[in-house]
């Protein structure tokens, strides 16, 4: 409870400012990783097409920066479209599943079975149907990413406590207000859990789409570099791909913190 943690200070030793920065520990682990990479290259001297020197990768990033940026932009655009449309597809399905028993019984089993198909295996088929354009990548992204949003939204909506529903009914809330004022805010933490999975899968979907047929995007660049044994360029492309993943995830987390500051997953005082 809130009043309890103000009374007993756990630690009195002052923590230096640089250690209190949240970015400190991830940066340390990043440098350790880079150091291990450098050490491996110096110790075992592998062929550059197997494991390039970190400096060589850095050089490629600098020299190919405009091209890398262009392809990153393409993949990031596909990812954000796939993410947005996943939400647009998943939310109504989830609302209907949570609201109507008949809809749940007809659609839910179908949905679960559809998830047993490896969606990556469908990529060539989507390519045949939709062609080489943007729509193929976005469609594959949606197929890969929308399901967790459906599940988490349904779980959130269905876990509203019975007494809370009684409360709403005793206040005479209309169905619309019941949803706006009780169901949706209650489900929001769970929905965001699904959105975090969705955003990472949307990146996967976009790259898979680029693998099967594209002339731009980081997936295409990786395939191209692989064919030409340009491993340093491949590493550079991978680094930018990681950046897309990390930044988009952080954006979802930021939105979460803005929308639900009350929740324990966001609060500073919770956990640890």
């Amino acid at each position: 409870m809130g009043h309890a943690d103000t009374t007993i200070p756990i630690s009195v030793t002052p923590v230096p400012v640089w250690r209190r920065m949240r970015a400190f520990y991830p940066i340390v682990s990043l440098f350790v990783l880079l150091g291990m990479w450098q050490a491996t290259v110096m110790l075992f001297e592998p062929a550059p097409y197997l494991l390039p020197h970190p400096i060589a990768v850095a050089n490629v990033i600098v020299s190919q920066f405009p091209a890398l940026l262009y392809h990153t932009g393409i993949t990031a655009f596909e990812t954000s479209l796939a993410f947005t449309l996943s939400i647009a597809v998943a939310m109504p399905i989830a609302f209907l599943i949570a609201r109507f028993r008949w809809f749940e019984e007809t659609v839910y089993p179908l949905l679960v079975v559809s998830q047993a198909v490896p969606k990556v295996a469908l990529a060539p088929l989507i390519l045949v149907w939709l062609g080489f354009g943007l729509s193929t990548k976005v469609m594959i992204g949606i197929l890969v990413a929308f399901f967790p949003v459906v599940i988490s939204t349904v779980v959130g909506l269905k876990s509203v406590p019975k007494d809370m529903i009684f409360l709403g009914r005793s206040m005479g809330l209309s169905a619309r207000d019941m949803f706006r004022k009780i169901y949706f805010p209650f489900a929001l933490p769970s929905i965001f859990g699904g959105l975090k999975v969705c955003i990472t899968l949307a990146v996967v979907g976009a790259v898979v789409g680029e693998f099967v047929g594209a002339d731009k995007g980081l997936g295409y660049l990786i395939l191209l570099a692989s064919g030409q044994m340009q491993t340093a360029l491949m590493f550079a492309a991978l680094i930018f791909l990681v950046l897309i993943g990390v930044v988009s995830f952080a954006l979802v987390q930021w939105a979460e913190a803005r929308l639900m500051p009350w929740h324990s997953s966001v609060r500073q005082d919770a956990g640890h």
Binding site: D163, F166, S170, P185, F186, L188, M260, H263
Partner: peptide, 18 residues
């Protein structure tokens, strides 16, 4: 139908966290 000229207190507070 559910009465609305009513106040209910449950065993748990049932407060809206948000």
């Amino acid at each position: 139908q559910p009465e609305t000229d009513i106040g209910i207190v449950f065993q748990s507070p049932v407060l809206l966290d948000w």
